[in-house]
Nucleic acid binder design. Structure first.
Lengths: 152, 152
DNA sequence: ATAAAGTCTATAATTTCAGTATACTTTTTG
DNA sequence: CAAAAAGTATACTGAAATTATAGACTTTAT
């Protein structure tokens, strides 16, 4: 049940972009290289990932000198589920319980297939978390932990 | 977040072995070919899978004429989590939240990494289901559904 | 005009997955 | 004791997915 590097890097980048700007707390704009450096990622790889997020309406960008990426919507309106699905596809462990990419699997009777029932539960449990957690939630959670530990 | 074929086939086979015998309801013994045919799986591939489950203490086998595989323990004592981990490895989406295969990931401060916090929740949600669901649970659930639908 | 940024597409390298192949051991039974 | 039926063990292969790298192009600020 692994999260791909693509998904991981994309989520990290989005979280970074959702952190409030140090000065004015305005929507933050960052360059690919800046994020790549900060997160220790190949900037060429990150480039593709951010582009995909942009083409799916989660990021906006500004070209040219002084350009960069920024969130397409407030951090309260972007969920980890949206990001995950753009980068890693469906959340469901098996296609026969997928909302976004249903396909029958091999079981003789899908309605009463025990494996399918359980995997449906797993799917729901995962999407319950991913679809209810916004970037704002994540940033807040990080922030209060950091405060508690007296870091940064 | 996909379940591999290896994991899927293994889980299906274990569920099949957990279904009560039609005659006497005794612990069921089945041959590789029998299971493979029933589930529509390559029997050579299934062979490897069952062997792995055996070597990890979840199955017993009898060699020679009239042999086959059977559950090493009562179906109430084998969880889907145990089976999953043998065949697909850790449940955790990222190594840094894995119980069985922890490894640091790239985040500068693991304690306050937002992604890690959320993925920890996901891990717990998945293992909550997989580790609490036994083969007996699955069989029972299938059975009552079938009864309800008047099947078989 | 130039440099700094993102865009786009192709391709390379690596790893994982799913499945095959083959030789071997154990057990039953005639 | 021989033969057949079962599991054991390990090696290998082909395809696909993943993770990257490369390079040529477009847009914008100065």
């Amino acid at each position: 049940m692994r999260l791909s590097k693509r998904g991981e890097y994309g989520l990290r980048a989005m979280i970074a972009l959702a952190e409030p700007d140090e000065q004015d707390g305005s929507p933050r704009m960052m360059q690919i290289k800046e994020i790549a450096l900060r997160e220790g990622i190949s900037s060429k790889f990150l480039e593709q990932i951010l582009l995909a997020l942009k083409n799916n309406g989660l990021l906006h960008s500004k070209m040219g000198v002084g350009g960069g990426y920024y969130l397409a919507k407030p951090a309260t309106e972007i969920t980890l589920g949206q990001i995950f699905r753009v980068l890693d596809g469906p959340v469901a462990p098996v296609k026969c319980v997928s909302q976004m990419a249903y396909e029958p699997c091999g079981c003789p009777d899908e309605e009463t297939c025990g494996l399918r029932l359980v995997m449906g539960d797993v799917r729901n449990a995962i999407s319950d978390i991913l679809d209810k957690t916004t970037l704002a939630n994540v940033v807040k959670r990080q922030g209060s932990l950091r405060k508690k530990l007296g870091i940064k």
